[in-house]
Computed example of a mutant assay.
Amino acid sequence: MAGAFRIFGRKGYSEGSAGHISVRDPVEPNTFWINPLGIHFSMLTAADMIRVDEDGNILDGRKGVINAAGFAIHSAAHKMRPDINAACHTHSKYGKAYSCFGKPLEMLNQDACNFYNAHGVYDDFGGVAIEKEEGANVAKAIGNGHGAILKNHGLITVGYTIDEAAYLFTLMERTCECQLLADAAANQGKPKCVIGEEEAAYTYHMNADRETLYMELQPDLELEKRYDDSFMSFTNAKKAKAKAAAGTA
């Protein structure tokens, strides 16, 4: 979960205090972990996370507060979909831009086919989603799919694992970017070629299973680990140098 946040931070998905990831607790599955307010995605660690119950009561983890809209959305998703254990939502740039159309993604490339008949659109923006009803409506828009485009808001993805949900979010954000680029070109007279139904369904079948989607996040996670190792090596070297200098003095 912390690694997914670090990836999101590196990719520039943060927007003030907006955005949240939740993970169902494996011991008490009617509770889940979510990030606290006030910490940048790039700085979050496992120790920062907060566990809440289905009524929003804080049970464990870091002392702090959570995003009310985040709780409304994620609690509804976890209740409606017992098969999912993680959900990701941020106000990423291209997701926000494409969301203003209130339309599903077109199957314009192989990667987009991971969302073939597997994403919804919540087309009734009701303001900041702090109301229980708004959270439930978002969950309904996700349905049995991988996620949804929230009109005038952003993106949300879900998964059996945090790896799956986080990769799907990075993929949906990039797919929105590609859709916007393709639409811009089409407006200049270049016709789009949309993948056929049969081919899109086959591609989805081959690429959108749990195991494959889990694996797709691993390169980014390994990169984050390398960044962490490099940072710790640099920090320890600075401390050792400072200690040696102090001893010499």
Rank of each mutant, 00 (worst) to 15 (best):
G9R: 03
R10F: 08
K11P: 08
Y13D: 08
S14Y: 03
S17V: 13
P26E: 04
N30Q: 10
F32M: 04
F32H: 06
S42R: 13
S42Y: 06
S42P: 11
A47Q: 15
D53A: 02
I58V: 12
D60K: 14
R62P: 07
G64I: 09
A69V: 08
I73Q: 06
S75A: 11
A76Q: 12
A77T: 12
P82T: 10
I84K: 00
N85W: 07
P104K: 01
C113A: 02
N114D: 01
A118H: 06
V121F: 04
Y122I: 02
F125K: 01
G135Q: 03
V138I: 15
A139C: 08
I142G: 03
G147V: 09
L150T: 07
K151M: 13
N152I: 01
H153R: 01
G159K: 03
G159E: 08
T161E: 02
F169Q: 04
T170Y: 02
T170E: 10
L171H: 01
M172D: 04
T175V: 09
C178T: 01
Q179V: 05
A185V: 11
Q188K: 13
C193A: 10
C193T: 14
V194R: 03
I195G: 00
A200Y: 00
A201L: 05
T203H: 00
T203K: 00
H205N: 08
H205R: 08
D209I: 09
R210N: 13
E211I: 13
E211K: 10
E216G: 02
Q218L: 12
L221K: 10
L221D: 04
L223W: 12
E224G: 11
K225L: 13
Y227Q: 11
K239T: 15
A242S: 14
A246E: 15
